[in-house]
Amino acid sequence: MVDKNIKSTNNSWVANVAQLARIELTNAEETKFAGQLGAVLENFELLNQVYTDNVEITAQVTGLTNVFRSDEVKNPAGKKSRDELLSNAPEVEDGSIKVPGVFQ
């Protein structure tokens, strides 16, 4: 499995992943989470005891495949439903969601 020493001796993995997940952590949070999650990651080592060569993965348990429904419009779009959908957006202009620029 993964080199255990990297994660137990170094908090940088927490900072790296948090950055990728668009979450900012203070140094104190980074240390706290690394300690707490370190204990959880140690628990994962248990899985090394299980022989899994040639074992299929399970991603879902329904056994259903290719579930389709007919392509019918049930709620015709209109100004009312658009306004309702936009009512939760922080900033709206001319029926569209407005966001700051990507570059500044």
Partner: peptide, 26 residues
């Protein structure tokens, strides 16, 4: 969120996520 992104990240996906899905089968 941090733990989830970690177990899915490149290099750890097989060791954690895929392994867990296999043990889920068992």
């Amino acid at each position: 969120i941090i733990l989830g992104n970690y177990v899915l990240s490149s290099g750890y996906y097989d060791a954690y996520y895929k392994k867990a899905q296999q043990v889920r089968t068992l």
